[in-house]
Design a protein around this nucleic acid. Structure first.
Length: 545
RNA sequence: GCGCCCGUAGCUCAGCCGGAUAGAGCGUCGGUCUACGAAACCGAAGGUCAUUGGUUCGAAUCCAAUCGGGCGCACCA
């Protein structure tokens, strides 16, 4: 028997009560089941009466009174889930649940195990999330790190709700910037001045030394470039692994070109009648699909623009059977989305299968000044530096705790100084604290039984149980909205509720019939939930700190 | 000029497919360790939710306009 979703049961009861007032007709939109703003307004509340007032031609409070009668019948009496129902404010129906309901809810959480409970998603998809995809011409900087943390967390969220998801990094290993990169390395190897707009960072010097040490001729630009890219990709891969991100696929742009996929995509666009020649260039009529101007595919000098292989690349993704393509892109690429989407539609694919998530900027602030982050100037904060400084857990937390579409400043001095009172440590501390309690309990032979308890629950126990019940919903919301920052907020709330519970309630050795056992069960679920939430963020949940 | 994003507490930000007295962290001020971890807890102060108008029983949330900030508008990637 699958574990019960206690909240879904309550929601079902409210809907049933609403239907009863309308001869079985469902309410549109569905009534809410929320946590009221204040504890004395009940455990849960619904706006059903306000929604029904119009259709029933009665005032909300009168409707609420009728709902109250229905709900008392459904949840009260022998069912025993209800202490009482009250009508408050403009017509809210407030539910006050019994201890028996809480005991059963806790037991259901224990039974749910490490999973998210029933029905994580209604429509599983095969999803490819492409993220980071930084040019392999330099180390990963913090902006790429934010994209990495975000893309990875989105993958974890989507996987958690039942989608089949893969991580992919698109390597721009063809084109003019690669030539410039090779020229820069070569110049360093020969001790000559950098070319115009060359790559200036010290890492280019290091690359030059390493490549020279391998006996590669500095004048063999193709060999220098290939080796340089290979070394950079190795470095980026290593940085990402330190950061907890492991790609399923590293997809080479060059391989695409060599396979002839670009020509194939072009042929398909031609056949569809979406291209035309103008002033010596080949254009794609993206304006037919919502773009604000047409785009060049092949320049008048015969070279393809970067859009050409990118179209082929996205076509390839679809061809591999992914029903949804998610691109995590930097803020400076948002102007690119419309043409890519249009291109996908021009290929005959459903443009809604393509989703671009635009990352806002991240600034590293030191001594009140923003560090510059231009790869070519060589003056930027690398992700490796940041990890060295504040660690993967803190770095990921800071990057994930805010919406991806808002700019974020990370003040290094502050992050260092506050290390001991950082929000991520706050949550991790809660986990370590629970672990400590459970260790002690197990040493003393205590176990967790959620239901065999006759002593009433404390308010802070109820608050924690309610919080833990929200986890599956929070995960679904965070996944649906591509919003891992919600999980940060939720983790903090769980930790806060746990600390309040800890303050009020002795666990090990608690007095009362079944009290210790039920509190141990609560600790067990709380620990699992914190670990699960942190896991979705790619942040460790330490047993000890 | 056009497009996208953002204006919420001193600071950094949640809340945004409408709900009750708008939240968190940090910072400030004041309390709490002879019970399982004080990296914690409790309390206080702190707000014209940029502005104006509209929709609604109800707007931080939806719509319009305005103001302010960021980013983008290549035959560069």
């Amino acid at each position: 028997m699958p574990p019960t979703d206690s909240i879904a049961e309550l929601k079902g009861a409210v809907e049933a009560a609403a239907r009863a007032l309308r001869d079985g007709e469902p309410t549109e939109p569905a009534p809410t089941l929320d946590r009221p703003p204040k504890p004395d307004l009940g455990d849960y509340s619904s706006n059903a009466a306000m929604l029904l007032a119009g259709p029933l031609g009665d005032n909300p409070r009168a409707v609420a009174e009728r709902l109250r009668g229905e709900l008392e019948g459904i949840l009260g009496g022998e069912v025993g889930n209800l202490d009482r129902v009250e009508v408050a404010g403009p017509g809210f129906v407030n539910l006050y649940l019994s201890d028996a309901w809480y005991r059963r809810a806790l037991a259901a959480l224990v039974a749910a195990g490490d999973g998210l409970g029933p029905a994580p998603t209604d429509a599983p998809e095969r999803i490819l999330v492409e993220f980071v995809s930084a040019n392999p011409t330099g180390p990963l900087h913090v902006g790429g790190g934010r994209g990495a943390a975000y893309g990875d967390a989105v993958v974890r969220l989507l996987a958690a709700v039942g989608h089949e998801v893969e991580r992919e990094y698109y390597i721009n290993d063809a084109g003019t910037q690669i030539t410039k990169f090779a020229e820069s390395i070569s110049a360093r190897m020969k001790g000559e001045p950098l070319p115009e707009d060359g790559y200036k960072g010290d890492y280019v010097v290091e690359l030059g030394k390493e490549i020279a040490g391998e006996g590669i001729d500095p004048d063999d630009l193709a060999a220098v470039g290939d080796r340089g890219i290979a070394l950079m990709i190795d470095q980026v891969r290593g940085t990402l692994e330190r950061f907890g991100v492991v790609m399923d696929t590293w997809f080479s742009e060059r391989s695409l070109v060599e396979k002839g996929d670009a020509e194939a995509a072009l042929a398909k666009l031609d056949a569809g009648g979406h291209t035309y020649r103008h002033e010596g260039a080949l254009w794609l009529r993206t304006t037919d699909f919502g773009d604000d101007k047409d785009r060049v595919l092949i320049r008048s000098d015969g070279e393809p623009t970067y859009l050409m292989p990118d179209i082929a690349y996205h076509w390839d993704k679809l061809d591999r059977g992914f029903g949804r393509l998610i691109d995590v892109l930097g803020a400076d690429h948002h102007g690119y989305v419309a043409r890519l989407r249009a291109s996908i539609e021009a290929l005959g694919a459903d443009p809604d299968s393509f989703e671009a998530l635009i990352m806002s900027l991240v600034h590293i602030v030191e001594d009140g000044q923003r560090a510059q982050m231009s790869k070519r100037s060589g003056d930027f904060v690398s992700l490796d530096d940041l990890i060295d400084d504040i660690g993967t857990d803190a770095a990921r937390w800071f990057m994930l705790s805010r919406s991806h579409e808002t700019t974020v400043d990370i003040d290094l001095a502050l992050a260092r100084k506050q290390a001991s009172e950082n929000p991520v440590y706050y949550v991790q501390y809660a986990h370590a604290r629970i672990a400590s309690i459970l260790r002690k309990a197990s040493a003393e032979g205590g176990g967790g039984d959620a239901e065999g308890r006759t002593v009433p629950l404390e308010d802070s126990e109820k608050a924690l149980i309610k919080r833990l019940l929200e986890f599956p919903h929070e995960v679904r919301e965070a996944a649906a909205r591509r919003a891992p920052h919600r999980i940060c907020a939720y983790s903090t709330a769980v930790a806060a509720d746990f600390h309040a519970f800890y303050r009020d309630c002795q666990v090990v050795g608690a007095d009362g019939d079944g009290v210790e056992a039920s509190r141990l069960a609560l600790c067990l679920v709380a620990k699992r939930t914190v670990a699960g939430a942190l896991g979705l963020l790619g942040i460790s949940a330490p047993e000890r700190m």
